[in-house]
Design a protein around this nucleic acid. Structure first.
Lengths: 237, 237
DNA sequence: GCTCGGAGGGAACTGAGTGCCATCGGCCGC
DNA sequence: GCGGCCGATGGCACTCAGTTCCCTCCGAGC
């Protein structure tokens, strides 16, 4: 939570919401999530109990104060796409928005990570948040793959793979207390997904007309063997 | 829930547990999940309130009475693997265990599906169950990929893809009220994942030595273009 | 008969989340 | 300036999930 305006429409009165988040995290860190009641939080923040639930529909929501905004950003980002965007690359870029949100506030993100790792209830809540991101990506891909054979299946699988790759990199960054280059790690992870699902991995092909490789295959041969052979030959693993 | 023995270790005293599940679903279906209190359930089942929580740690658990057993089955299945099993194929087979559980009792599964689709709390609970399956698959793959470059990343992504493919097929089967061949749909979906991640897609290549295709590529060309070209040529989309 | 142990019942408690209403403070029209 | 309107807040009481503690019942073994 930065100190100035953040989640509200635009202007300058987020004091109460931020105060609740600050009070909640202070107590969560010193005595644990489940040992802290909502009454404790509102007492420390000096506000009424009823006001807490005006800003956060549940006790869990105070732990993820900015995911709603991020989800809205992602939805808008995908809605602003057009047919010129390569679909898989586009959802990878959308996933990077989530990393951006985490990276805005590394220490807060790391604290929250430790909390969610320990408390089953928070882990479940996080799963439902992640699921909404995944659905947003999948719905976009379903639109782009409409008419293609197994379009919905591909959309769901690719969305899940993108989310898994993103989370793999994100969590390893969080485990290292926010050290290292999170962006590079996520790029690497998403690059793997893009290469697996037939999207160009960032760098456009340079011109090396002399570098030619010939593959010969029987039609009946399993596709994975052919691809494996090509990968080996091209030296990309 | 079949009428005879089911979830308990082996013998013959599951009466109370089954009675609670039956009473719960009867009420959930006639007046909705959130409109049904635990007191209503125990009143209908004719047992004490305390006994409900002896059998089910929470109200949500009564909706998924057999997932614990299924998860244990999957863990055991994966633990019984050896190095001879192709890893991706193995996790696909593990995923089929879940389908098997749903197919054991189609009408029950369809009712539960409608319920979880409507009630956010149940959807969140289901996500946490699915997450445990996914972690089981991912942990197995991490073991098999140990030492390989990006082993953990690959494990997480493939596990997510397998789960997403399985769920895609399962949910479309559930939406159709349990009509159609769920097993075939899941096979098809998992086949897609296997082909994407370099596992042989079930049928070994038949011998058609005359069916030959030649691909010529520059080394610098993006891999996805090469693969796309091969897919088109082989007529697999 | 007796105890003993486990399964079930039940009252009372905590804490999350909700509904309802009172209050306060600014803002508008008069 | 004044009364009323309105949005934000506080406070109280209620429901319900989940837990704790203790009681009863019943069958097994002595």
């Amino acid at each position: 939570m930065s100190s100035s305006d953040s989640t509200e429409t635009a202007s300058a009165k987020p004091s109460m919401r931020d105060a609740l988040v600050a009070a909640a995290f202070q107590l969560f860190l010193e005595r644990g999530y489940e040992q802290t009641t909502v009454d404790d939080i509102v007492a420390l923040a000096g506000v009424g109990r009823r006001s807490f639930f005006r800003y956060f529909p549940s006790k869990e929501d105070v732990v993820f104060p900015d995911h709603e905004r991020c989800l809205a950003d992602m939805t808008a980002f995908l809605a602003a796409s057009d047919a010129a965007h390569e679909p898989v690359r586009r959802v990878c870029d959308a996933a990077r928005l989530v990393l951006l949100m985490y990276a805005e506030n590394p220490s807060f993100s790391v604290q929250r990570y430790r909390l969610t790792k320990q408390v089953p209830g928070l882990r479940a809540y996080e799963l439902s948040v992640v699921w909404r991101y995944e659905r947003a990506l999948a719905e976009y891909l379903r639109g782009r793959f409409a008419g293609r054979r197994d379009g919905n299946l591909r959309a769901d699988v690719i969305a899940a793979a993108v989310v898994a790759a993103h989370n793999n990199a994100l969590r390893s960054w969080l485990r290292s207390d926010g050290q290292g280059d999170a962006s590079a790690a996520v790029d690497h992870a998403l690059g793997y997904v893009q290469s697996a699902f037939g999207a160009p991995p960032a760098a456009p092909a340079e011109e090396h007309p002399e570098d030619v490789v010939v593959v010969v295959s029987r039609r009946g041969a399993p596709l994975w063997r052919v691809v494996q052979e090509i990968e080996t030959t091209l030296g990309r693993d």
